[in-house]
Design a protein around this nucleic acid. Structure first.
Lengths: 191, 191
DNA sequence: CGGTCTCTTGACGGAGTTCAAAGCTAGTGG
DNA sequence: CCACTAGCTTTGAACTCCGTCAAGAGACCG
């Protein structure tokens, strides 16, 4: 089980199994049932979550009441509101489980302690945030240049299992369109 | 002149003037003429840029040849391709000057050296990246819920000087619409 | 003063939305 | 284990916003 965390970290930085085990000792482990929330907007995001098995969904509820999916948290993904986590301010995000989910979680204090004892993790987290940032920038650029059908087929290519694991209306909100439109896109033959 | 850098950093973390001066000694200073590029896609982004006076523009050129403005770099903004800067990989971004611009710049090695000698900057840069990340996420959410006119008026509210300083077709590309559409939005009376 | 770059305006078309209703499906309790 | 229901998906028709194409007006620079 700990292998997932090792894989995730060693993919980005040079690190030994022992160091990851030490790091892992700062985490706690828990499960959440489908449809339950890990936190909601207005609360402080106290933990960083690492998905071991299952599926989470990160979303905003804007002033107009629109539900906008920002990100899915599949296995081996990190989920949480970085801003709230590090600043201690209230979060605008919500995180719910789309499947029964098994995860590790790391409190803010333990994050600091872990970084003090394993300094090379500093680099890991910088890389993690950077990657999240670049990914979001690229998604933004795609919204401007690809139509909904292209975005849908690209998503399915990257993440074939999303179709069977995520309800269509959440996929639609992630793509920035309405469920009806996604339904019509799917009706048309695949490219 | 150094005051700007001090303001920018001390707004986010506790730091003394002396420490900022020390930090500043790792930077070099330069100017760039309007329409010149600081770097273009295919190159490695070797520096982080801090705008003292003037205006930069960060943009992608996608496969379809579309020019997509990702960010403007007004005074006191940090500009660069974080991904390329830290990874040493080629950048996909371009940065050009929209006005004659005076800036500080920091090479990758000097960044590391500076962080070693002033460890609290580690925190500053994490906050900087985080903020950029959160901002991009929120922009994405807005694209999905606000129409072009709302996005335009919100932008002008946050940045009134953008109208006089940035050509309309760049504002349009930042908003994700065509110049013609922005022209029509402007024709309609302000809310 | 001429040329190029930028902005405006008009007419038309297309992608996605909205509203509404009907068809499916999966989860629940009897 | 089946039947019922609530939630999800599909479909149709009308509409809206924005894009495209094209032409002309205006601004800026050498």
């Amino acid at each position: 089980m700990s292998e997932l965390l090792y894989k995730n970290i060693s993919d980005r930085i040079d690190i030994s199994c022992e160091e990851v085990d030490k790091f892992k000792s700062y985490f706690k482990s828990d499960k959440v049932k489908k449809k339950r929330h890990l936190f909601t907007s207005g609360e402080i995001c106290k933990y960083m979550y690492f998905v071991e098995k299952g599926l989470l969904r990160e979303y905003y509820l804007d002033e107009k009441g629109e539900d906008i999916t920002i990100q899915f948290g599949f296995e081996e993904h990190w989920v949480g509101d970085l801003y709230s986590y590090f600043s201690g301010e209230k979060s605008n995000l919500n995180v719910e489980a789309l499947e029964d989910t098994q995860f590790l979680y790391l409190a803010r204090d333990d994050f600091e302690r872990a970084l003090l004892s394993i300094p090379k993790l500093e680099r890991f987290f910088r890389l993690l945030i950077q990657k999240a940032y670049v990914t979001t920038q690229q998604r933004l650029a795609r919204i401007f240049t690809e139509d909904a059908a292209e975005r849908y087929y690209n998503l399915v290519k990257r993440r074939p299992d999303i179709i069977s694991r995520v309800p269509q209306y959440h996929i639609a909100s992630f793509l920035g369109i309405k469920p009806q439109s996604l339904s019509r896109i799917r009706k048309t033959a695949t490219i």
